[in-house]
Amino acid sequence: MTDTTLAQLRPARDASLSAFRAMLLRDVAVLRSNLYSFILRTVMQPLLFVFVFTYVFPKIGQGIGGAQGQATFSSLLVPGVVAIACIFQGIQAVMLPLVQEFGYTREIEDRVMAPLPVWGVAVEKLLAGALQGLLAAAIVFPLATFIPATPVHLQISWPELLTFLPLATLLGASLGLAIGTRVKPQQVTLVFSVVIIPVTFLGATYYPWAALDPIPWLKWAVLINPLVYMSEAFRAALTPQLPHMPVPAIYAAMIGSIALLGWIGIDGFKKRVTT
């Protein structure tokens, strides 16, 4: 019996790959059935931001930096808003579900028991989160481009865009995984005020990082914020005419942050499901 059993077993690699694929399919199916709420939660914040700052303000004569500055502001907001969309997917598609699954429902149990290593389940979460980030970026980009009352000047640099986009979405998902595996449900509101809000406000989203020159301490302090690199990356890819960090530095910082946060997240995931 044991021998026939062993013969029926699929090699660990095959079993893991098909389980991984099936989990991605599951996540896509769930996303499809929640498409409307996905779009709403993705669009709301960037939409209001772009609408108020780049449509309402110029119309009521409260432009930021005068008429000339306003035009630049609209352009420079596009990369920031796309970066925020990516990081928010990390929070909403990875962190919040994980907090709930670990804290209350334990519904990830069935996937943890599937024939693949536990770290594989965590990596699948990362990938699914990153895919949602891509989708979110695709939804938000036209909003930020077409809503502003003043013209938006984009000079898309495709090689940068096509490499930064997956990196940024992975980075957002890694942040979500790192926080989601280490936070208790009752701490979620705390995480929002202590982590998420500072990250978004100090993420070089509404101004280029270089513009922080007059406040040197802040300029260096915000470098621990992964969103800074995401914003700067999209700035380099969408509005390279505006100030942005050197491209190689952005690549290095993003890959480094993904490695660090990804490791923290996968390790946290393993610790949450095995003892």
Binding site: D14, S18, R26, D110
Partner: peptide
């Protein structure tokens, strides 16, 4: 259904 898929 997805459980079955997880198991290949």
């Amino acid at each position: 259904y997805y459980h079955g898929r997880y198991y290949g």
